[in-house]
Computed example of a mutant assay.
Amino acid sequence: MADVTRFPRYHQAENVVTNHVMVMLRMLYNASPKLLEGLLQALCADEVTVGPRFSQQVAGAHSVPDGLILQEPLAVFVETKLGSAADPGQLRRHCRTIVDRLPGRKGTYLVSLTAGQRGSIPDEVMEMAREHGIKVVPASFGDLVEQVGQLPVTDLALREVVQEFTDFVFSQGLVPREDQFLVAMLTGTSWRDNLAHGVYYEPVDRNPKWQRAAFLGLYHDRQVSHVGRIVAAVAAVQDAAGEMTFDDPETGSLDDARRQAIRDVVAAAQAYYPGLEASRHRYYVVDAFTPTDFRKRTGGGMMGHRYFDIENLSGARLPNRAPGTLAAQALDGRLFD
């Protein structure tokens, strides 16, 4: 067993990536077990418990102790693949290894981490795992960096590490090609103004959506109603003199027209979001919002932003640097769950 280190001696790319993933998880735990717990709960879609729980007056079969400190058993095994598919044979062998190492253990997870989109686990592997109380969790590197980016990290140094980890994952090509992806963003009161000015905004501490998607869609009334290609993403805030100040663009470029579009959407938001300009937000400017009808088939609203693979949905690959109009056409009339 090799220790996780910030300075790995590995030469094989897969081992280096695995080490960096484990370092990130360890740093989250060291900062707060709750951060690691939140990440594992999001990835595993389960009530994963990390660390002890403190209770009082817990009734038992024969008495009611005044206090209880309980730590549930937890074991998380991670298998990484730099390709888009897991190795079923290897996962079966991992299950046997887990049973040999931790016989009868509850709270055991095997996370199958792959590049590209989240893959599926063959039924025979899932059945074998269930027989031994192991939960196999398929996850993509995109899922991982997305969930890490959503954690309430307040420590500035750790936030920098999270961003560096995200940059590393993207630099290794482990997240799908963004030129074929749409991020659908929830809109409510701001929908008309987002549409009118071609700008969407979010707090700057949220993970940058342009890193995973070239196109942005406005989700409204159970459908993605309009799509545009992201041509600029920039953080901005109002200065002491009352003027909007812009950072260097994170992606794309700014000109006077795009800066004015941001000012205009901020001015329009004063009717329902007073003070928007006083806190730093990230503004996404699109080439234009083109109407489409990409509708949610199942009941209920979309719970948060979502990424969609346009190529897989439409069956045709968008050309390089395709405008938003082509993405809107490719999604028009299609459904999602």
Rank of each mutant, 00 (worst) to 15 (best):
R282A: 07
R317C: 11
T189P: 00
V99L: 06
V99R: 14
R93S: 13
R317S: 15
I262D: 12
R192N: 12
D143I: 12
R321T: 01
N30Y: 12
S314M: 08
A278D: 13
H305T: 09
A316L: 05
P208F: 06
V234P: 09
L174I: 02
V58P: 05
L102P: 05
F77A: 08
A86F: 15
H132K: 14
H226R: 04
C95P: 13
L25H: 09
V153S: 04
T292W: 07
D221R: 09
F246V: 10
R258N: 02
V76Y: 11
N19F: 04
R53E: 15
D143S: 13
T245V: 15
V21C: 13
Y273A: 10
D155C: 07
G133A: 06
M303G: 08
G300N: 04
S32W: 12
Q260K: 13
G228F: 07
E164N: 08
C44Q: 01
S84I: 11
G89Y: 02
A330H: 01
S55G: 02
G304F: 03
G116Q: 00
K209Q: 14
Q270I: 00
L70W: 07
E160I: 03
Q150W: 04
V58C: 03
V78Q: 00
W210H: 15
A59F: 00
P88W: 11
A328N: 01
V224R: 05
